[in-house]
Amino acid sequence: MATLELNGLTKIYDDAQGRETAVEELDLAAEDGEFVVFVGPSGCGKSTTLRMIAGLETVTSGTIEIGDREVQELAPSERSLAMVFQSYALYTKMTARENIEYGLKHSTDLDERAREEKVEDVAALLDITELLDDIPDEMSGGQKQRVALGRAIVRDPDVFLLDEPLSNLDAKLRSRMRTELQDIQDDLGVTTVYVTHDQTEAMTMADRIAIMDDGELQQVAPPETAYDHPVNEFVATFLGSPSMNTFDARVDASGDEVTLRREGVAFATLPADSVPCDDGAEVRAGLRPEDLRVDEAAESASFEASVTVAEYQGNDNFLHLSTADQNLTARVPPDVYPNPGETVGVSVDPADVYLFDPESERALKTRGTAAQSRENQPLTQSE
């Protein structure tokens, strides 16, 4: 097993169509046995990063270290890593046994008996022993995925690379495979880099998530830290479903308290020491849907809002609200189900209010008290 370290990793495409920076000055260190998940919108550079680690894309500048070796100039076969692709990439005319054994046969000096033993061990680990003599056309999507994982695991690599391996599976199987992948990675203890656009996969599987946007690494942190203490507005709104409500607001300071106002509506009142802004300053406020408490009686609430749409979800409801020329989404218990057009009261705990700089988008306050907000915010890449 080994660590993985990326230092100033940059990829620039320069051709007749123009010059485009796909990944810019990316720094990241994954500890031995850590499960790191790259997540971000389409085109953010996460797959390009993975392909550079794998050796499938050349590196414009920067270094890639696996263990104590720089590998960015080495061929993929010399990097001691294994990759699982979104498309599975199985040989359609080979059995599962032959697919799993293929890498061993062509990249090691193991004899036939030793290769067979390793294949059998991996098949048992993945619960696919009964599939070893089947070809891919005889397998389900989940079974193909296990065979693809087996082909990677059997090589005992220092680093696993997984490129959206669950995206072709249905929702139920994808959920089950998430758990199985975590169990397998934990048993093997192999440093793993996983790429996905699905934030649920990122939040549930990762030791740390690496959030990217427009080729730049925005934040690297444990999922709960990135969710509660995002470094900027992009991370805050990218993580969470439904997305965080964000809107422009004005700081109205009075004594030891600060009120956030928009169009004359007071959205929340906070202790003055939790808001690092002067009286009258313009800020971007953020409220997560699950932090909006709705009272249909509209009593003792922070502010009132009109219900525009109520979406029944079974275990909870999504309420779409309107107030002060602003649309908000609240995630509420299933017994809270007002009719469209009703006026409801909405309460917000001051600790759950997020604030961002409207120009730099940098987080000024995250979840918790002022001290908790500052202590728990990890550094951004540039810092």
Results as ranks from 00 to 15, higher is better:
2 A>C: 01
2 A>E: 08
5 E>F: 06
8 G>A: 06
14 D>Q: 13
14 D>N: 14
19 R>A: 01
35 F>N: 01
37 V>M: 11
41 P>I: 00
45 G>Q: 05
53 I>L: 06
55 G>A: 03
56 L>A: 09
61 S>G: 01
62 G>F: 02
71 V>Q: 07
72 Q>G: 04
76 P>A: 05
90 L>F: 10
98 E>M: 13
99 N>S: 11
103 G>R: 09
107 S>F: 12
108 T>S: 08
110 L>S: 03
119 V>D: 03
121 D>A: 06
121 D>N: 10
127 D>A: 15
132 L>V: 09
139 M>P: 02
140 S>I: 10
141 G>T: 04
142 G>C: 02
144 K>H: 01
156 D>F: 11
163 D>T: 03
166 L>Y: 04
170 D>G: 12
172 K>H: 13
176 R>G: 05
176 R>T: 06
179 T>L: 15
186 D>E: 15
191 T>G: 14
191 T>S: 13
192 T>G: 07
192 T>Y: 13
198 D>L: 13
220 V>G: 00
222 P>N: 12
227 Y>R: 08
229 H>W: 01
233 E>W: 01
240 G>L: 06
250 R>E: 15
250 R>T: 15
255 G>V: 15
256 D>G: 06
257 E>W: 13
269 T>Y: 04
271 P>S: 09
273 D>F: 12
282 E>H: 07
282 E>N: 08
287 L>F: 15
294 V>N: 01
295 D>K: 00
295 D>T: 11
298 A>V: 00
298 A>T: 04
301 A>P: 13
305 A>S: 05
308 T>Y: 02
313 Q>T: 09
313 Q>F: 12
316 D>Y: 14
318 F>W: 14
320 H>L: 03
323 T>R: 11
334 P>S: 13
337 Y>K: 12
353 V>T: 14
355 L>Q: 12
356 F>Q: 10
362 R>S: 15
373 S>I: 01
